[in-house]
C-alpha cells in the first residue's frame, strides 16, 4: 500500500502521466486507488499535435497497468518521510515472509 498511500498525498497536484504507448497526459490528479488507477482532471496532452484525438477530452481515467511513469512535483514529496515509509513497508514484508516461512 506504500504507493497508494504515496499517491493519495499528491491528489490535487499537477502531474504528468506517461503511458506505455508514449502518450503523455498532464493534468490534476483527482484520485487514485490501490491498483494505482489514476483519474486526471483538466488534462492536456503533451505533443498534442501527435495525438489530436485527445484534444477534446477534459478528464481521463487511466488504468494503472498502462502507466510507465508519473512525473511528480518534487516539492510535494517529503523524501525522508517517503524513505522511512519504504523501510517500514520493507520490514513489514520481510517479517510477513518470515512468519509465513517459519
Amino acid at each position: 500500500m506504500l504507493f497508494f498511500s504515496f499517491f493519495k498525498t499528491l491528489v490535487n497536484h499537477e502531474v504528468t502521466v506517461e503511458l506505455k504507448n508514449d502518450i503523455s497526459v498532464r493534468g490534476t490528479l483527482k484520485s487514485v486507488d490501490q491498483y494505482l488507477n489514476i483519474k486526471l482532471d483538466d488534462i492536456s496532452v503533451v505533443e498534442e499535435m501527435k495525438y489530436p484525438h485527445l484534444s477534446s477530452v477534459k478528464n481521463v481515467f487511466i488504468r494503472g497497468s498502462v502507466v510507465r511513469y508519473v512525473h511528480l512535483p518534487a516539492n510535494a514529496v517529503d523524501t525522508p518521510l517517503l524513505e522511512d515509509a519504504t523501510r517500514r513497508e520493507a520490514s513489514q514484508a520481510a517479517s510477513k515472509a518470515k512468519q509465513s516461512s517459519s
Binding site: 497508494f4 498511500s5 498525498t9 491528489v11 518521510l81 513497508e89
Partner: peptide
C-alpha cells in the same frame, strides 16, 4: 488502507504510513 479505521491506529499507520504522517506534516491535500 487499514483494517482499523481509527486514525493513528497502528494498523492504519502500518498500511498508510506515508499518507497519514504527510497529511499531518503538511496538511491534508484536500
Amino acid at each position: 488502507g487499514g483494517i482499523d479505521n481509527e486514525p493513528g491506529s497502528e494498523d492504519q499507520l502500518a498500511e498508510d504510513f506515508y499518507y497519514q504522517v504527510y497529511a499531518q506534516i503538511r496538511g491534508p491535500p484536500r
